[in-house]
């Protein structure tokens, strides 16, 4: 089993990658901006609820069994997209993030610390590079603006939480993404897809500008297969995906921060339900398959999302 995990990880390892995140939670923005084919004058609005529990303590590639901590991230995300033409579209993403860290106390009981607030704003422009009958290639470029809360503090002590507990990252980030889709695989309605996203972060000032903190740059590779099934009169689209994520170490005053950065391989299963031609309900659940992390980090145990999407055309 372990062998299989590592084989999968190796197969997906791009050569020459450098190295991310202490507690790898944070606002799930870059993983929420999926590219997708839109047609001219199409509007989409989607409300997403994202849940991420991090109760797995990992040292390097080994799981430590007696972790007292559980980091829970609840995020509400609102996405609005508009296609100016069959090739060009623009997407905006707003978020609200709540993070909790529950710690099992040695003397018994549990302590919970909570941070919450508006997350950062992300804007993405998308261009359809290739549009064939059976394939498409989309490319996108985006910017993350530091509109989120970065100074939420513990109410008992007045001390600000660590940057990875804050709803916002406090820094401008840029991302580039590309998605290739090939239709008609195995079945006429089946398709395979692969998406690569790279996110580069600038540094943020904290502790009254005494320190700069820069989250590590991040690469995400998502590949999978999806199909459409008509059950009764309802149209469902199940999917199975592999997500590889690699982040460099965070930088503190320009120096690599210990216990940040690493590689993750996750399995994601998704299901979409076209309730009506205009309304879709979408969901996915994601589990870690393998990791190789820098130092000791709390990492994802389970992630899940439920969203509802409404789409229409401008006249």
């Amino acid at each position: 089993m372990r062998m299989t995990k590592w084989l999968l990880l190796l197969l997906l390892l791009p050569a020459g990658l450098a190295g991310q995140g202490c507690c790898s939670g944070g606002t799930p923005l870059s993983g929420s901006l999926g590219l997708e084919t839109l047609t001219a004058k199409q509007w989409q609005i989607e409300l997403m609820l994202d849940y991420n529990t991090q109760s797995t303590l990992v040292s390097g590639g080994s799981k430590l069994e007696d972790n007292p901590r559980n980091r829970l991230t609840y995020a509400g995300l609102l996405r609005l997209s508009y296609a100016f033409s069959n090739r060009w579209s623009l997407t905006g993403l707003l978020s609200w993030v709540r993070q909790e860290e529950k710690i099992d106390r040695i003397a018994g009981g549990t302590t919970t610390i909570r941070a919450q607030g508006p997350g950062d704003l992300m804007l993405l422009t998308q261009y359809a590079v290739l549009q064939g009958k059976r394939y498409s290639l989309l490319a996108g470029a985006g910017i993350e603006l530091p509109t989120g809360e970065t100074s939420d503090a513990n109410p008992d002590t007045g001390i600000p939480f660590h940057p990875d507990m804050q709803a916002g990252r406090g820094a401008v980030a840029c991302l580039g993404s590309t998605l290739f889709t090939y239709n008609g695989v195995l079945r006429p309605s089946g398709n395979v897809f692969a998406q690569a996203t790279y996110r580069i972060s600038s540094s943020a000032e904290r502790y009254e500008r005494l320190q700069s903190y820069q989250f590590g740059n991040e690469l995400r590779l998502l590949t999978g297969y999806s199909d459409q099934l008509l059950i009764g009169e309802q149209l469902f689209a199940p999917s199975l995906m592999l997500l590889y994520r690699h982040t460099q170490k965070d930088l503190l005053n320009g120096l690599p921060s210990p216990n940040t950065g690493g590689q993750w391989l996750h399995l994601r299963t998704g299901l979409q339900w076209a309730v009506t031609p205009k309304i879709e309900i979408r969901s996915f659940v994601e589990w870690p398959l393998a990791w190789q992390l820098e130092g000791t980090q709390l990492t994802t145990t389970l992630r899940a999302r439920l969203s509802i999407r409404y789409q229409w055309y401008a006249k």
């Binding site: 007292p68 901590r69 860290e101 710690i103 099992d104 106390r105 040695i106 302590t111 610390i113 513990n154 002590t157 007045g158 001390i159 600000p160 939480f161 660590h162 507990m165 502790y207 009254e208 005494l210």
Partner: peptide, 25 residues
Amino acid sequence: TSADWQIPTAYVGQGTGFDGIPALD
């Protein structure tokens, strides 16, 4: 410093919470 703290809180940072790093008994 403040009335609540004997030390300047600008130089206090939060890594984790109580017992996030487990002490031994």
